[in-house]
């Protein structure tokens, strides 16, 4: 199984993040707890600002020495393939195999065909649904986890980490056993007398959504947790003391102060969920086709590399727009009108 195609794109966008952190699990996902979006923000910007002051020049030189190989590495392994892909997307495909070096925008025009547009739309929709479900489950989980005492925090954290010790693929096959006709879920429901015939959830849209939520919810939990962890609970008490009901105190104080965590959780959920094609593959059969599946198919089966590249470029642009949007809103200190 190949890496989900979206991952190098995120890393590519983050300009050196892949090279700096380099810490990815076998699925190509960033490890939990790592503040991906943070390094996106600080990495290149800080380096660009640094050489301005004369005083620190010496230190800069030393810093440059360490940073340079990293940038070179990034350039070679991230920017290189990206540029290659970009070039590729403007070339023609050969009849049977390979490419013809001839400029064309045909690949991009092809995306505008209803079938492909619909795939993009479906992907966005599934990503939206996934993100919504992940938010609804992951936010309260992460928020309340931060309220636990140290001992329980550790235990819950361990429970959340354990799944990461196994390949996500193997865990997905677990879902097949649960979802298939007369599988664990069906038998449980029938035994409980809730249904009297197998539901056959496998290869349906809900199965894919559950798989997506399952795969992505830890990232939301960690993002919200790390932000709720820093929350000063005395502020909530101050709000209550000043006349806020528990909900008002949550909404005007806790929620506002954990919003950065929630937003990075949304980014960490939404973007990968457009590319996790293997979940749609395994749990959705042929019924759910996402952009990731399409790219995979064009690349591996149809052998239309330029078209696959064009699809990837569009997906990447969409993702970048979303990151830019996230940075925009999380960078704004005052969100007026929330209170």
């Amino acid at each position: 199984m190949k890496r989900p195609s979206s991952v190098p794109m995120i890393s590519g966008k983050s300009g050196g993040n892949a090279g700096l952190s380099g810490k990815e699990d076998p699925d190509g996902r960033h490890m939990p707890g790592e503040e991906t979006t943070q390094s996106v923000r600080t990495g290149p910007k800080a380096a660009a600002e640094a050489p301005r002051t004369k005083r620190t020049k010496r230190r800069i030189d030393a810093a440059t020495l360490t940073v340079t190989p990293l940038y070179a590495f990034t350039l070679l392994f991230v920017a290189g393939p990206l540029i290659y892909m970009l070039v590729l997307s403007f070339l023609k495909r050969a009849e049977i195999w390979g490419i013809i070096h001839e400029f064309t925008v045909e690949n991009y025009l092809k995306i505008l065909e209803p079938v492909y547009l619909k795939t993009f739309w479906e992907s966005l929709k599934l990503a939206g649904i996934t993100t919504l479900l992940v938010t609804l489950t992951g936010y309260p989980f992460g928020y309340f986890m931060a309220k636990l005492n140290a001992k329980w925090k550790q235990r819950v954290m361990l429970l959340l980490m354990i799944p990461f010790w196994t390949s996500s693929l193997i865990r997905l096959y677990g879902w097949i056993i649960i979802f298939r006709a007369n599988g664990t879920l069906d038998r449980l429901l029938m035994w409980l007398g809730i249904t009297d015939a197998p539901l056959k959830v496998l290869y349906t849209y809900p199965a894919v959504a559950v798989g997506m939520v399952y795969a992505l919810v830890p990232f939301m939990i960690f993002a919200v947790y790390s932000s709720a962890e820093k929350l000063d609970w005395q502020l909530v008490e101050a709000a209550r003391d000043l006349g806020a009901t528990p909900f008002q105190a949550f909404w005007t104080v806790s929620f506002r102060l954990t919003l950065p965590g929630l937003l990075s959780g949304v980014v960490l959920t939404f973007i990968p969920s457009m590319g996790l094609f293997f979940i749609a593959d395994i749990l959705g059969g042929n019924k759910v086709v996402l952009v990731g599946n399409l790219i995979h198919e064009q690349l591996m089966k149809a052998r239309n590399w330029p078209f696959a590249a064009a699809l990837s470029v569009v997906l990447m642009v969409l993702t970048s727009l979303m990151i830019a949007f996230y940075r925009r809103i999380s960078g704004v200190k005052e969100l007026e009108g929330l209170l």
């Binding site: 005395q234 502020l235 008490e237 101050a238 709000a239 003391d241 104080v253 506002r256 102060l257």
Partner: peptide, 14 residues
């Protein structure tokens, strides 16, 4: 009754 907390507990986002 209202309280003035030892570390002030001002809302940092306001």
């Amino acid at each position: 009754v209202n309280m003035v907390f030892q570390n002030y507990a001002l809302f940092p986002h306001m």
